[in-house]
Design a protein around this nucleic acid. Structure first.
Ligand code: FES
Ligand code: FES
Lengths: 162, 162
DNA sequence: GGGAAATAGAACCGAACCGGTTCTGTTTCA
DNA sequence: TGAAACAGAACCGGTTCGGTTCTATTTCCC
């Protein structure tokens, strides 16, 4: 299973929340509460996103984070790159830092480039704005119809906490 | 960095080698030598690919592995799924096995689907045949031009071995 | 018929990576 | 001046995964 790191996972969730009200700035603690990601993780992620110029921060009391640019111009590829480094499926991706050592006889060599480009383009084709616009047609499902009752799951679960 | 597991990495290399001569069957040891992947790893991978009906095997002396179908009908998505399980970037991918627990308030929810579909389609759009056809225009680069001399790297490196 | 050569399958191990926390420092505002 | 918020780094334990090894089974050839 190709897995996206939790960092990017949570990061996208958080950013999507921010993209709902593009102008508005929110404190890390507020965002943590809004997304149910642990406050520590939230802080870590937000700091990384500021470094990548995806967010801008205001320090001090009444501080907070806001999108640095309109959500239409932020792609998930950029987000993932900010949090997890360059998007490359295999070590053979970047011809510069090529570490596989068998390139001379490797039969797949330039096939890798195809794959990596495909993924990168797919990820670059989705903007934060698209992520944020939820399908409003589908109303929240009637609680009656939900399979297992809420009794079994802890109320107000917080993810990103042991 | 979104990383592809080594299993899939090597698997694609090995399959690409097989796709060069679609009809021909090769022994695991032969393939290992041809791809510079350790024999143990090669065996493990080949067995998994047989289970997924991507390869067919012939046991006993003079045994070996061959593609189960023409390489044009094998996609990298299928290969990765065979070796690493279902392709899903995040835990929120499959609506059935959804484990995140905050779906009710998660702002990104249906954005995930978009992302997962995008990469799945990208991966399903590349066939093994395409991977195998190398670009014959570019001749092997002149050794003179290579930056670091081969002295520093062990000759005939075998990957997948400590 | 027996043995060598090959695949089938499972169990096992160590180590790198990663998710998550914590602590200290700095900025801002009331 | 102190509380509230961000900045940045260090740290730590656990899971996962790459890789190996061992045993069983099948097949061919002598
Ligand atoms: S695996 Fe590195 S060039 Fe093919
Ligand atoms: S993170 Fe699970 S639904 Fe959004």
């Amino acid at each position: 299973m190709i897995r996206l790191s939790r960092l990017s996972d949570y990061g996208i969730v958080i950013l999507t929340r921010l993209a709902r009200e593009p102008g508005r700035a929110m404190a890390a603690s507020t965002l943590a509460r809004a997304t149910a990601v642990s406050t520590a993780m939230t802080g870590k992620i937000l700091k990384l996103l500021v470094r990548a110029d995806i967010l801008v921060s205001q320090r001090g009391v009444r501080g907070g984070y806001a999108l640095a640019r309109p959500p239409e111009t932020i792609t998930v590829a950029q987000i993932i790159e900010a949090l997890d480094g360059p998007i490359a499926l295999t070590s053979c991706a970047d011809p510069l830092v090529h570490a596989c050592g068998i390139e001379s006889l490797c039969p797949a060599r330039d096939g890798w480039r195809r794959i990596n480009r495909a993924i990168r383009e797919a990820l670059a084709g989705i903007t934060l704005a698209e992520m944020a616009r939820t399908v409003p047609d589908v109303p929240p499902p009637n609680l009656e119809t939900r399979p297992r009752a809420a009794a079994s799951e802890p109320a107000a679960a917080t993810i990103g906490a042991r």
